[in-house]
Amino acid sequence: MKHVLTTGVFLALSTPAFADQSVSINFVAEIGGKPFSCTETYDGLGSTDASVAGTDYRMFVSAPALVRADGSLQPIALEQDGKWQLDDVALLDFEDGAAGCNGTGNPDMNTSLGGTVPEGDYQGLAFTVAVPFDKNHGDPTLAPAPLNATSMFWNWQNGYRFVRIDMVPTDKKEGGPKGWFLHLGSTMCAAQSKTEAPSACANPNHMPVLFTEFDPATHVVVVDPAPVVVGADLRINAPETSPGCMSFPGDSDCLTVMEKLGLPYGDIPAGTQQLVTVR
């Protein structure tokens, strides 16, 4: 008899050695602690307590793994569903294309990733918010799902938006931005031409996530940009820059943001990532 952690409790099973067990990791999207909806407005955000409406909310994760008691990682073999999961990459889509999300969104949603792991005693969760380099630079119109999500793609050099959370201030200052967007992706990627894959990126901006305590049966992964943008004024935008923070160097809208994604930005060292938590 062996003991296997499958649903937060130990079960006695008489299954063959090395049998696989299914695992599902559930995610929830929030803004300021409130469930995300394309029809809602969210108050008290950023350095000026701005009110915003959400217009897009998606995120790529890769290399998901459960954490064993000794700290080692067991990769989750993702189900190859032909739509949301490809190899070790999954697209999470929290918008339903309604109301303010009808510009870039779509009705289909995906709020979990699923696959299998060998039977074992697991106590944590790890993944990376990113698209791996070898999949990040190509033609999305020719890529299999979910990498065919063209609205998550920047260009050949920089690749995909790993995070796309679009917010529109409803109480913006006169002449203020039409939107304040939190987009995370690789930047400063050297390539010979605009249609050639780069050899490397100076700022990969892959965001590692590790939870030492996580039970898929009782815990959910919570995504919320409010702690990330707490020091930013969402009602204005730095002149001659993209709306909000899109990870690119030289954007003062990113000065208080990137460190809270656990990433360095210019001379600002990385802090603790605050976008993703467990509940």
Rank of each mutant, 00 (worst) to 15 (best):
residue 130 A to I: 13
residue 143 A to T: 04
residue 148 N to E: 06
residue 128 T to V: 15
residue 157 Q to N: 13
residue 161 R to V: 06
residue 126 A to I: 04
residue 134 D to H: 05
residue 133 F to S: 11
residue 148 N to C: 06
residue 162 F to K: 01
residue 159 G to I: 04
residue 121 D to H: 15
residue 121 D to W: 12
residue 158 N to C: 07
residue 155 N to T: 07
residue 138 G to Y: 00
residue 130 A to G: 00
residue 122 Y to P: 09
residue 130 A to Y: 02
residue 148 N to F: 11
residue 161 R to L: 08
residue 126 A to G: 11
residue 126 A to T: 13
residue 139 D to R: 08
residue 154 W to I: 02
residue 145 A to N: 09
residue 142 L to I: 02
residue 121 D to L: 15
residue 161 R to S: 14
residue 149 A to Y: 10
residue 145 A to F: 11
residue 135 K to S: 09
residue 159 G to Y: 12
residue 125 L to N: 10
residue 133 F to M: 10
residue 152 M to F: 14
residue 142 L to E: 15
residue 144 P to A: 08
residue 156 W to Y: 15
residue 149 A to D: 14
residue 159 G to S: 05
residue 127 F to C: 09
residue 145 A to V: 13
residue 125 L to R: 12
residue 123 Q to F: 00
residue 145 A to T: 10
residue 144 P to D: 11
residue 134 D to Y: 02
residue 151 S to I: 11
residue 122 Y to E: 07
residue 159 G to N: 03
residue 141 T to I: 01
residue 152 M to N: 12
residue 140 P to N: 04
residue 121 D to R: 13
residue 127 F to G: 08
residue 148 N to M: 04
residue 125 L to W: 12
residue 132 P to F: 08
residue 161 R to W: 09
residue 159 G to K: 05
residue 141 T to C: 06
residue 125 L to D: 10
residue 136 N to R: 05
residue 153 F to E: 03
residue 161 R to M: 14
residue 122 Y to C: 04
residue 151 S to T: 14
residue 131 V to K: 01
residue 149 A to I: 01
